[in-house]
């Protein structure tokens, strides 16, 4: 199978702008909650909006990152920061809206990364990696700068996992040879559906499962001991992050 190559990055600008704006708003709210100063709120807002894109562009060595070439992104982040700084009460009112838009647009983050990787003649795995990094990079940098364990690596929310699945779907569909528009829409719909299901069903990402220890316990002590050991591991893993996850 030949490397999937797409010719032009054909992604609606309106969706890109919406994605970036709502990323910036959620970042500004996050920073305001932690009591940062104006520069901090702007930085976090900007990095939530375009942080994934910065990492993507630096890794792709694709010239100056997009947000520096198109200053509209800086402007959007600044507006989001000002709104978050002075009108955090208003932003808190529209948190459900932000959540819904985030849910619907998780696929578009992945597309922003994967399409650019494919446009630069990279292979499957690189395109998947770029999609995942673009989707998670903003939150990762945000948590690092706030001095927290990145929510991407903490057990809990189904966000990174959905990004991985969406990247696989998109790159797979493009690789099979489907039109790019179909692949885009399918990815976005599947990602949004997965995210909604994860939120509604309270899905929890699994932590490491000690298969060897469980087999050993099952052979020596029986099923009860094995189940007890599994519960203990789960509790330990949950407890390890419970302090850091407190907001």
């Amino acid at each position: 199978m030949s490397t999937p190559v797409i010719d032009v990055i054909a992604f609606p600008a309106a969706i890109t702008i919406t994605t970036v704006t709502f990323g910036g708003l959620s970042g500004a709210l996050h920073a305001t909650k932690r009591g940062l100063d104006p520069i901090g709120v702007f930085t976090i807002s900007l990095l939530c909006a375009v942080g994934g894109g910065i990492i993507r562009d630096v890794l792709l060595q694709a010239g100056v990152p997009t947000f520096l070439v198109n200053p509209q992104y800086l402007g959007l982040a600044a507006v989001a920061a000002v709104i978050g700084f002075f009108l955090s009460g208003l932003v808190r009112l529209v948190v459900p809206l932000i959540t819904v838009v985030d849910t619907l647009l998780i696929g578009s983050w992945v597309l922003l990364g994967s399409e650019k990787a494919l446009a630069y003649h990279l292979g499957f795995s690189a395109a998947i990696l770029m999609g995942v990094i673009t989707a998670n990079g903003g939150g990762l940098v945000r948590d690092l700068l706030c001095g927290e364990v990145p929510s991407m690596v903490k057990p809990g929310e189904w966000y990174g996992l959905i990004a991985i699945i969406a990247a696989f779907i998109f790159v797979g569909m493009v690789g099979v040879g489907l039109p790019i528009g179909v692949a885009e829409i399918t990815t976005m719909v599947v990602a949004a559906a997965l995210r909604i299901a994860a939120i509604r069903g309270r899905w929890h990402t699994p932590t490491a499962y000690d298969l060897w220890g469980n087999l050993e316990a099952r052979m020596t002590a029986g099923v009860e001991e094995s189940l007890r050991k599994r519960d203990e591991t789960l509790r330990k893993n949950t407890q390890r992050f419970s302090d850091a996850s407190r907001d």
Binding site: A31, G35, L36, D37, P38, I39, G40, T43, I44, L144, L145, C146, G147
Partner: peptide, 29 residues
């Protein structure tokens, strides 16, 4: 201001110039 941010990240603390306090990043801006 990037050096200060990088320093705090490597030292494992939240970057000080983004917290309320001394006016460094704003002066750079």
């Amino acid at each position: 201001a990037g050096g200060l941010v990088l320093r705090d990240l490597l030292a494992g603390i939240a970057p000080a110039i983004m917290r309320p306090g001394v006016l460094i990043a704003a002066a750079a801006f």
